[in-house]
């Protein structure tokens, strides 16, 4: 087993464990956010192994650096260190439903396994900033500009939602 394959399984185990830890941690919201950071960083490691270097950098900057900090900021702003919620209704049923969904995905993957692509050899620099930038600003320029519009709408929406009164 080569180094990158071993790293893939190590990061995969870390990501799964921290994701489960995030979901089952019912007492401390900040600890759940920290588990989410571990999951994001593990996924960034997997992206590096899968030759998506720029995506890995963006993953760490945006997810671990911005989104989770925003979560922790809101948790601390609302002073929610301990949450004491009663258990939800039909918990076992929802758990079984999720497991059934996983079983369905596994069966689907097993039946489609022969149609999955064979892994090809890559050209030099695949997934680096040069290749990705060239693709982003030529073939996918319209989508790129549309995301700028989306971010503008999100900024305006977030300010209006969090504002105390609209007319002042």
């Amino acid at each position: 087993m080569s180094v990158d394959v071993a790293l893939f399984y190590l990061f995969a185990a870390m990501a799964t464990a921290s994701a489960v830890a995030m979901v089952v941690n019912v007492r401390n919201t900040v600890a759940a956010a920290m588990s989410l950071v571990i999951c994001m960083v593990s996924l960034a490691g997997i992206y590096v192994v899968l030759e998506a270097h720029l995506i890995a950098v963006v993953q760490i900057m945006v997810y671990a650096g911005a989104i989770v900090v925003l979560f922790i900021f809101v948790v601390m702003l609302l002073n929610l260190r301990q949450d004491s919620f009663p258990p939800g209704r039909m918990r076992g049923l929802k758990f079984l439903g999720s497991l059934a969904g996983l079983w369905f995905l596994a069966r689907f993957l097993a039946t489609q396994a022969e149609y999955l692509p064979q892994t090809v050899a890559l050209e030099e620099g695949f997934g680096g900033y040069r290749h990705l930038g060239m693709a982003l600003f030529t073939d996918y320029l319209l989508a790129f500009e549309a995301t700028s519009l989306l971010l503008l709408a999100a900024i305006v929406g977030a300010v209006i939602l969090a504002k105390r009164r609209l007319d002042t």
Binding site: V58, V74, T147, L150, L151, A154, G157, L161
Partner: peptide
């Protein structure tokens, strides 16, 4: 990732 960032900004505002 862009959509996720926008979603988190609006969601935490809500």
């Amino acid at each position: 990732i862009t959509v996720a960032a926008a979603e988190v900004a609006v969601g935490l505002g809500i």
